[in-house]
Design a protein around this nucleic acid. Structure first.
Length: 265
DNA sequence: AAGGTACCCAACCGCCTGGGC
DNA sequence: CGCCCAGGCGGTTGGGTACCT
């Protein structure tokens, strides 16, 4: 680092830095600066723009809030499905998961997981990353989200042209066949989640009626070996699982196409 | 109406990694 | 090779708010 940049850095550090919520003036300053100079070089931006913020803070504010393509509002059923599915693959890789949800930030997805998904796990008195909980999500939560998704005519319309261009691949057909051979009684989460509460404004009411079994019962009733065989921890098995039992009006191929569509684009 | 509680989410923190020197 | 810095990422916190009681 040169002497010049060092002294600039010292000045920057000595400057009284602002913290906490951003004001409208700060937002417009940041937007204006990025419009003129582009994203990146956040520390330089912080020094040059007149914002008394750290580069990190500027970056975060832009990426999580000010960027024009940020989506606002509740996550759709399809988005929730995708988060559940991708989290089961990759764990807490929020930024990676966010890449598959255009307009959604890693922070938003992380918040969704911590507030909604982990809440369900807490209610069940199990770890959100446990096989017991993932089984419950797959067998009870995801099918409902799929039903919600299938109710959306827009999604259905979007899926149709995709399917005509992207027929199911052989691996999917193979997985589906294997999954179909599994005895349905292996999915014991019904014992765990007779009525998985939906996230809504009256969660309290729903959760109040929900009486989770003790930990011991959960441990006995869910066989990890079958429910979470790695052979089924991919997109196609989820689709197979969800359409099982006529839970959804969607055919397997349609659902598979929808999920694949999200995975690709 | 007031107090308590739970939830949501923006923002911060600390750690890690990669690149430049 | 080692140091320093910027940027990125996941974890955590705290203020605001909605919802009970």
């Amino acid at each position: 680092m040169s002497d010049k940049s060092s002294s600039s850095s010292i000045k920057y550090q000595e400057m009284e830095l602002r913290r906490g919520p951003w004001t409208l003036e700060e937002d417009s300053l940041l937007i204006h600066y990025i419009a003129c100079h582009g994203e990146g070089r956040w520390n330089l931006l912080a020094r040059s723009s007149g914002l008394k913020r750290t580069g990190k803070s500027c970056r975060l504010r832009w990426l999580n809030y000010l960027k024009p393509d940020i989506k606002r509002g509740n996550l759709s059923a399809e988005e929730q499905l995708l988060i559940l599915e991708l989290h089961s693959k990759w764990g807490n890789r929020w930024s990676r998961i966010a890449q598959y949800l255009p307009g959604r930030t890693d922070n938003e997805i992380k918040n969704y997981w911590r507030t909604r998904v982990q809440k369900q796990a807490r209610q069940l008195r199990v770890d959100a990353n446990s096989s017991v909980f993932r089984d419950a999500v797959r067998c009870y939560w995801m099918p409902r989200l799929l039903d919600e998704a299938s109710a959306s005519a827009a999604i259905a319309a979007a899926a149709t042209p995709f399917l005509s261009q992207h027929p199911p691949d052989p691996q999917f057909l193979h997985d589906r066949q294997e999954f179909a051979q599994l005895p349905t009684e292996n999915c014991h989460s019904q014992v765990l989640i007779p009525h998985m509460p939906q996230s809504s404004s009256n969660d309290q009411d729903q959760l109040a009626r929900f009486d989770p079994p003790p930990m011991e019962a959960a441990a006995i009733t869910t066989p990890d070996d079958v429910s979470f065989d790695p052979a089924f921890s991919n997109c196609s098995d989820i689709v197979s699982d969800m359409t099982n039992g006529g839970q959804s009006e969607w055919g397997m191929d349609e659902l598979y196409g929808m999920l694949r569509g999200y995975m690709k684009y």
